[in-house]
Design a protein around this nucleic acid. Structure first.
Ligand SMILES: [Mn+2]
Ligand SMILES: [Mn+2]
Length: 551
DNA sequence: CCACCTACAG
DNA sequence: TTCACACTTTCCT
DNA sequence: GAAAGTGTGTCTCTGTAGGTGGAG
């Protein structure tokens, strides 16, 4: 294993700390992911690296900000000084452009309201919009055919003293960020927050061979999906986006992302009344929710035969419990119409329900119920069992598997919610779970709790887990119960990670019970039913507490 | 004039 | 990069 | 009863500057 300097945040005492962080990121990608970069991209990076200190810094400032267009007057930084000569240098290097045509709504965002009024004084007066709000004006401008053609900033507003700079290297820096972090929701502020101590991550060893991407096509695919999703969020029609979907790659992670996007396109199409697009997208999506949604849409359109056939196929091989539940409901609605046999009556074990009558209050109903019940009661929802699992299996969770960790800012392994997470760590997890057998789990969990307090972990909400709660949970919940719950959680961390009861109540004699609180008008959700059924089957005390208001 | 919102910086 | 959950409305039998 | 839609609190933090828009 080659020893390589781990990328680390720069000191904030350095006024160019952000430049140093950008260098760290770029160097890491160039050194260890260079095979995924084109010659043109390397040349562009070379141009940036060859620029002067201030020019490199200004470009980083621009890349970190929102949008691609910046007024020179808004690029004043103490440590950089006069931006004009620096901008000229970046222009000469081709890293930024001037006189880029921009649409009129972009112009409206770049100008203040006062400037916008000056720029379009006549037009606004004529339209009776002189005093309208900025948003109204922007929308009006966008809708006017005479402003439909993008123009350079100076052409829109010739009297301006200002210059507009437009980034010409945004795709490159976005690509670098993606290759470094393995996602596009993390950015340079990770370095800063970590340095400030505001954000703490577990330290996991990783080698340069541990990467998010191994082929350029994978990076391209991720970016394509990302931009399609962005366009969907902007309100573009799902049908055209579906056409633009890239062909699938031989990569389970990206295939799942593609299927999820296709599912979201289908949902959007369904909402918009474009049933054809919706059905096509559902049919081709491998997302675990797609089949039930497709069957429901067919049913709603009156295609009972199609819906029923889909339900039957799914019931023969359900993907998960949620799908089974959804398809069973569908079957119960349709079997008579289809002349099919009645479903085996699902003895959804009678759910133990008690009623609590309380004076009306604005407080959350879970808290009220907790206060009204005897004994120590905690409002934990999903946090308790997920948190206990994380604490017990910490070593397995943060084991340095190749591809699981590849930068210093991971809250959890990259594959935490992907299929096969537990299988890839079966021995490590077995070793952790074995502590439930030999009794050492209590001390191990408490030690982890104290040692790792505050470290970001997707399964752990630190403020929800107090030390007394953990102590009580560990003394009152038998290890066999923990083992059963953890095994279920590990079988599908995403699918089973939610739906756990609101409250845990510890009994004086040493036992405990789980309580799902329901206010007036609230009902059990599917995932809550599934957990209650599981608890029932395991002999774990779990019930529903129906709250009614005192008249 | 002031409350509110947003982008930005660290 | 949302998600999980509660709460509300609508439709149907 | 089922499904769909909406709202809320959490999300990684905190402080600040500038812009906006309504009230007076
Ligand atoms: Mn709840
Ligand atoms: Mn509840």
């Amino acid at each position: 294993m080659a020893t390589v300097k781990r990328p680390a945040p720069a000191s904030l005492a350095d006024p160019f700390y952000y430049l140093a962080n950008a260098r760290t990121l770029v160097d890491w990608v160039r050194d260890h992911h260079g095979d995924l970069l084109l010659d043109g991209e390397k040349a562009q990076l070379g141009a940036w690296l060859g620029a002067g200190h201030e020019a490199r810094a200004l470009l980083v400032r621009m890349v970190m900000r929102q949008g691609e267009h910046f007024r020179l007057s808004r690029l004043r930084y103490r440590e950089i000084g006069d931006p004009a000569p620096v901008a000229d240098e970046l222009l000469a290097l081709g890293l930024v452009q001037s006189r880029t045509p921009i649409p009129v709504q972009e112009l409206a965002d770049l100008l203040t309201l006062i400037e916008l009024n000056r720029c379009f004084a006549g037009a606004f007066a004529e339209a009776g919009l002189a005093r309208a709000a900025k948003g109204i004006k922007r929308d009006w401008l966008r809708a006017r055919p005479e402003y439909a053609t993008p123009r350079p900033f100076d052409d829109w507003w010739p009297v301006s003293q200002d210059r507009l700079l437009s980034l010409a290297c945004m795709p490159l820096f976005e690509r670098l960020r993606l290759m470094f972090f393995g996602n596009l929701h993390q950015d340079g502020s990770e370095f800063v927050l970590t340095e400030l101590g505001n954000q703490r991550y577990e330290t996991v060893a990783f080698t340069p061979e541990s990467r998010a991407f191994h082929h350029r096509a994978e990076v391209d695919h991720y970016l394509a999906l990302h931009h399609l999703r962005r366009r969907l969020e902007q309100g573009e029609a799902p049908a055209s986006l579906l056409e633009a979907l890239p062909a699938p790659l031989d990569n389970d992670w990206l295939a799942a992302r593609r299927a999820k996007l296709m599912y979201q396109l289908a949902r959007a199409a369904e909402k918009a009344g474009d049933d054809d697009t919706a059905l096509r997208a559902y049919r081709h999506s491998d997302d675990h929710e797609a089949r039930v949604r497709q069957a429901r849409l067919l049913e709603r359109r009156g295609d009972h035969g199609g819906a029923f056939a889909l339900a039957q196929a799914g019931l023969a091989q359900p993907r998960d419990e949620a799908e089974l539940q959804g398809l069973q409901r569908l079957y119960r609605r349709l079997y008579k119409k289809m002349g099919a046999p009645a479903p085996t009556p699902v003895t959804e074990a009678d759910i133990l329900t008690r009623t609590l009558t309380l004076p009306p209050s604005k407080e959350r109903v879970e808290r009220l119920a907790a206060g009204a019940l005897a004994g120590p009661v905690y409002y934990v929802e999903n946090h308790l069992f997920n948190g206990l699992l994380a604490l017990l299996c910490w070593e397995a969770l943060y084991a340095p598997l190749p591809g699981a960790f590849f930068h210093p800012f991971h809250a959890g392994p990259a594959d935490l919610y992907r299929p096969g997470f537990a299988e890839r760590r079966s021995e490590l997890l077995a070793a952790c779970l074995a502590r439930l057998e030999d009794g050492s789990y209590r001390a191990a969990i408490m030690a982890r709790y104290r040692q790792k307090q505050g470290i970001s972990c997707p399964l752990l909400a630190w403020p929800a887990l107090s030390e007394p709660l953990l102590e009580r949970a560990l003394s009152c919940i038998p290890p066999a119960h923990l083992s059963a719950v953890f095994t279920r959680l590990l079988s599908d961390l995403r699918g089973h990670g939610s739906g756990l009861p609101d409250l845990i109540r510890f009994l004086p004699g040493g036992g405990y019970e789980l309580i799902e609180v329901k206010g007036p008008g609230d009902r059990l959700q599917d995932n809550q039913r599934r957990w209650l059924a599981f608890f029932h089957q395991q002999g774990i005390a779990a019930s529903v507490c129906q709250v009614r208001w005192l008249p």
